[in-house]
């Protein structure tokens, strides 16, 4: 009977400890209330068109002259490519000079926030694979540490329970 009570109390304490940790995490996940004006969810389309006018002109030319390459336009001394990069960037601004999101090392993003951090790095660096890879290693490292800690804590708990009997 004494053994049963001791085991039950140990189990309840362990569950309580885990629950308390979870509640503290949940409690601090709230964000300060902020509301945006509707205008924040819009942009100046005329300004965008003006900024992209050179690119739109080149795009229209490529559409009507399918198969034209950058090198061909350079050889023709076309003014359409005077201010255009020669390399492809299908996923957008892939080259952000290796800058991690908000200046925080990508490893830390992955390490602290796991998969969510990985996603943040991927989105914020606009698919920069170098930075995302660092975040992934952070994610792997934190998972490994968590597993080791989990095993150590449970090992210690099991040893304590065994020693009691």
């Amino acid at each position: 009977m004494k053994k049963f009570i001791l085991k039950s109390v140990s189990l309840i304490l362990a569950i309580s400890l885990l629950s308390a940790q979870n509640f503290s995490i949940m409690a601090s996940t709230t964000t300060a209330a902020v509301e945006f004006d509707e205008s924040v969810f819009s942009y100046d389309d005329d300004l965008l068109m003006a900024e992209l006018s050179e690119l739109n002109e080149l795009d229209a030319y490529i559409e009507t002259n399918e198969g034209t390459t950058f090198d061909e336009l350079v050889n023709e001394n076309s003014p359409l490519v005077a201010n255009i990069e020669s390399t492809a960037s299908p996923m957008g601004m892939a080259d952000q000079n290796g800058e991690p999101p908000l200046g925080i090392p990508s490893f830390l993003w992955g390490c602290v926030f796991g998969v969510v951090g990985l996603a943040v790095v991927y989105i914020m660096t606009d698919s920069d694979m170098d930075e995302t890879k660092k975040a992934m290693w952070g994610c792997v490292a934190s998972t490994a540490v968590s597993v080791v800690l989990y095993m150590v804590v449970w090992g210690a708990w099991a040893a304590t329970v065994d020693a009691t009997y």
């Binding site: 690119l55 080149l58 795009d59 201010n83 390399t87 492809a88 960037s89 299908p90 601004m93």
Partner: peptide, 20 residues
Amino acid sequence: DFTTKVKPVEGKMNLTKGKI
């Protein structure tokens, strides 16, 4: 068919076209 247009604050612009 996709077209990606990039206009940075400074430096050259980028146009990439193709199919995904």
